[in-house]
Amino acid sequence: MNFKNILSETSNGIATITINRPEKLNALNKDTINELHQAVKKADEDASIRAIILTGSGEKAFVAGADISEFSDFSVSEGGQLAAQGQAVLFDFIATLSTPVIAAVNGFALGGGLELAMAAHFRIASENAKMGLPEVSLGLIPGYGGTQRLPELVGKGRAFELIMTAGMIDANKALDFGLVNHVVALEELLPFTRTLAEKIMRNSPMAIAAAISAVNAGYEVGENGYDVEISEFGKCFGTADFKEGTQAFLDKRKAAFTGK
């Protein structure tokens, strides 16, 4: 599959998808969002891929925001459609993906870039990373899930402050807020993220997918996370991974999970 705005490579069961628009600081436009959807979908459908890493090209930016030139003249209905399509095609799609997605945040993650990172299951940042949602400085609000996912991660008060001031925080403040899980040197970002992906890959893909479903349910309106947990827990007993995992434990050996 040929892409114009992203790079996608697979190695040892890990798919690394890189937003590659360095001249635009990797800003998201419609084509890039669609390409990311295609690449993530393809990786998720490949049983040999057990983890996905999202990152940006270069050393300056993960994604510096949305490509404002694409929507500066949009009407009310066009603006609503832009947000709805973007959430459905990419941001919600990633958040509910059964394959773990880790954002390796290298540099600026602003606006849609931070929203993309927040849609991932968790985030690792380089020491030079800076994050924020500056949309109100443009007369907008975050439209790709930022008003929902940021409070979930950092709390309502901190989310309001970041959104209302349109300010940026550095990597260490993001770590303090719980927005990212780890901060490492830029040259260590991808190796460190791959090490975490490899740890994930030792475990049951079926169980991980079930855990993603259960955790997400706790944040969905109208869903009872405990009920989903019970249901997903029960389903695990019908998988080959469960049989392999428990037998390996009893045999005192490492499990060889197949994701079935």
Results as ranks from 00 to 15, higher is better:
Pro191Val: 05
Phe108Ser: 04
Arg202Pro: 07
Asp31Arg: 13
Thr16Glu: 13
Gly143His: 02
Glu35Gly: 07
Asp67Tyr: 12
Arg50Ala: 10
Asn26Gly: 10
Gln85Lys: 11
Ala256Arg: 13
Arg202Met: 14
Thr18Val: 11
Val101Trp: 02
Met201Glu: 14
Gly111Cys: 08
Ile49Glu: 13
Gly132Asn: 02
Ser231Ala: 14
Ile52Asn: 05
Gly139Gln: 03
Met168Asp: 13
Ala207Glu: 12
Val215Trp: 06
Asp31Leu: 15
Thr16Tyr: 05
Ile200Tyr: 13
Lys199Ile: 13
Thr18Cys: 03
Asp251Lys: 11
Thr96Pro: 03
Gly145Arg: 02
Leu190Asn: 01
Met118Trp: 06
Ile163Trp: 01
Thr147Glu: 09
Ala159Lys: 04
Gly222Lys: 03
Phe257Gly: 06
Ala217Gln: 00
Ile212Glu: 02
Gly222Cys: 01
Lys199Gly: 14
Leu138Glu: 14
Leu150Ile: 04
Leu90Cys: 05
Leu116Thr: 03
Asn106Tyr: 04
Ala39Lys: 07
Arg50His: 14
Thr55Gly: 04
Asp46Asn: 15
Lys156Arg: 05
Glu23Pro: 10
Asn172Ile: 11
Leu116Gly: 01
Arg194Trp: 05
Ala83Tyr: 04
Asn203Arg: 09
Gly107Arg: 04
Asp227Val: 12
Leu54Ile: 05
Ile17Trp: 01
Ser72Phe: 14
Gln247Phe: 13
Phe192Cys: 06
Arg50Phe: 07
Glu45Tyr: 06
Ser48Glu: 15
Met206Leu: 05
Val221Cys: 08
Phe233Asn: 13
Ser8Thr: 08
Asn29Arg: 07
Thr32Cys: 12
Ala15His: 05
Leu36Asp: 08
Pro205Met: 08
Val154Glu: 02
Asp176His: 07
Tyr144Pro: 00
Ser75Thr: 10
Ala95Phe: 01
Asp73His: 13
Phe242Ile: 04
Gly178Leu: 08
Asp241Cys: 10
Ala88Gly: 03
Ala185Ser: 14
Leu250Trp: 07
Phe177Gly: 05
Arg253Lys: 12
Tyr144Trp: 09
Gly56Trp: 08
Phe233Thr: 13
Ile208Gly: 00
Ala109Pro: 00
His182Asp: 15
Lys30Arg: 15
Phe233Met: 14
Ala39Asn: 06
Ala15Thr: 05
Lys173Arg: 15
Ser57Gly: 09
Ile102His: 01
Ala166Tyr: 00
Gly167Glu: 09
Ile208Pro: 02
Ala47Tyr: 08
Gly167Asp: 09
Thr10Asn: 07
Ala43His: 02
Asn12Ile: 08
Thr147Gln: 09
Asp73Ser: 15
Asp241Trp: 01
Ala255Val: 10
Pro134Arg: 00
Leu196Pro: 06
Gly234Pro: 00
